[in-house]
Design a protein around this nucleic acid. Sequence first.
DNA 1: CTGAAAGCGCTTACAG
DNA 2: CTGAAAGCGCTTACAG
Lengths: 341, 341
Amino acid sequence: MRPTVHDIAEKAGVSLATVDRVLNRRKGVRAETVLRVEQVIASLGYQRDLAAANLAKSRVYPLVFVVPEGENSFMRGLEMAVHEARRRSSVERTDIRLLTVPPFDEGALAYALDGLNIEGLAGVALVATESPAVRRSVARLADAGVPIVTLVSDLPSARRRHYVGIDNVAAGRTAASLLGRFLSHRPGKVAVLAGSMLVRDHVERRLGFDQVMRAEFTDLEVLPVIEGRDEAETAERLVGEMLDRERDVVGIYSLGAGNRGLISALKARGLNGKIEVVAHELTDHARQALADGVFAAVINQDAGHEVRSAIRVMKALADGVDLVDGQERIRIDIFLRDNLP
Amino acid sequence: MRPTVHDIAEKAGVSLATVDRVLNRRKGVRAETVLRVEQVIASLGYQRDLAAANLAKSRVYPLVFVVPEGENSFMRGLEMAVHEARRRSSVERTDIRLLTVPPFDEGALAYALDGLNIEGLAGVALVATESPAVRRSVARLADAGVPIVTLVSDLPSARRRHYVGIDNVAAGRTAASLLGRFLSHRPGKVAVLAGSMLVRDHVERRLGFDQVMRAEFTDLEVLPVIEGRDEAETAERLVGEMLDRERDVVGIYSLGAGNRGLISALKARGLNGKIEVVAHELTDHARQALADGVFAAVINQDAGHEVRSAIRVMKALADGVDLVDGQERIRIDIFLRDNLP
DNA sequence: CTGAAAGCGCTTACAG
DNA sequence: CTGAAAGCGCTTACAG
């Protein structure tokens, strides 16, 4: 049988209250008593039963998710996943708040973070934008002891405790590898459509893409990045201009959102299916484009998995317990027409 | 606040013991009392706190995993994942037993299932082999009320309650799609290496592969399936004979195990990197082959995820509670050299 | 057929 | 600085 607080109390010759004080590092216990109890704890190999502790405490984990607002379908999917998670709140003992902030707006994100009531917060998960202001806000929360988790786009070096998302450099490399192989021996130009070079996930995908293109597919010329702000209309206009301007575009890597605009631009010129396209995020539009042969492949990250993982991670950080690492690794999902779920 | 058994007891004017009897459908309660209590339960929207119930019951879930023995690296990885899960037993309240049986041996699998002590069993997860004997054994367990989960290879129509694994037809289609595109406009023959046409996962992968090959890549000729019994030596010999016999083999789909033998056969003939290979399961050998350019792509299912999912599913079935569907969908992972984890 | 009381493993006022 | 007792939400003998 697993040892309990009763076993510790008996063996150490103290009361349950004292055992609890030592277990939870609360003050007001004589140093030598602490020592004695700790020795018993170690000798018994005691491990707290978290479920029982949470029952006794009526523990609830107040969590906050901060997600960019706007038309980006992936972000809306992320929002849906947060709402799903809220429905499980009573079972999971969570109390989840969802905040949306204007996209690509460092100030707005920092402001939202600064406005959080830190009191009792068990964790904050945010889709990060790179900026000193955001870093400062994250540092402030971290100083207050709130576990911070970055979601989808990381903010390394910052005081975040964990990143929940795919390896974006690897994703970019994978996109290049697929595109290059699909285009085997078909020289020409490859365009890159991004949202903004201000968010780290986009920057990293582009980096990985360029690495592999330069190293392995030298007969393909990569054009300068187009920044469509993850908006369908902007993407449509800019991609359209590019297609009208350039000859010999054989491939496109769409590493951000705005795929609806990209698809329109291709169709308007009868180029759907003629140009190999690798895109990100399996939204409804992307799914349709795969089925129609407009997209050759879609690289995806599972928003549901990400939200569940973020919640598990924040709770574990708040409780100081271990994670099952493999369970928290977010996969680079690759979808072709043939493995659509 | 969420209503508790105390609220029910008070509102229904009965004791906690009676509430518990009704909640757990135990007999020995007057019909009208049952009715009254049930009405109160419904009116309060009561939901049992499973953690508290398990604490009170000192509930433990006895689970059994049945996995084929032998050299198949993927199965050994599955076994490792089960051992990992055992390490979490005290936290997850599980008591996990691992049984190994000879591979591709219907009789041995049925015998192992029949030998199980059903008493109190919360679930059985098995890598299924297709056969009437296995179906009978599964039915017997199901009749005894034991939740059965198939793992990796399904046994549809049988009395299993859930399948934990990838969609193998889709996996086969995906393999064909990748291979066909990588070989674009390079006509020739494609070989298929399987373990055995007795296990459903292999049959289904082949089916999906053929579907796409016939429909989309008509300049590729698919050779008859080679059955290597998932053994490296057998695979090496049979693939070697095939390579020596056939001209113009441009691609190979390895849909089972025995990849070590396949790699040796290719290398012995200096064909590594010359023939496009799509294989299954990211074992150490497959990983190395990807890195070396011997394999173009590897389709994988995450053994850790499968074992964790099987455990969650069996516990949920035993308790009669709902699952988070998205969490239990096993992905078809596609690995290229560029997204190796 | 029904209920009072104790208990699962932990925490929390409160009293001393 | 320490402990006795009650309580978290549920279940389980035991008695009637």
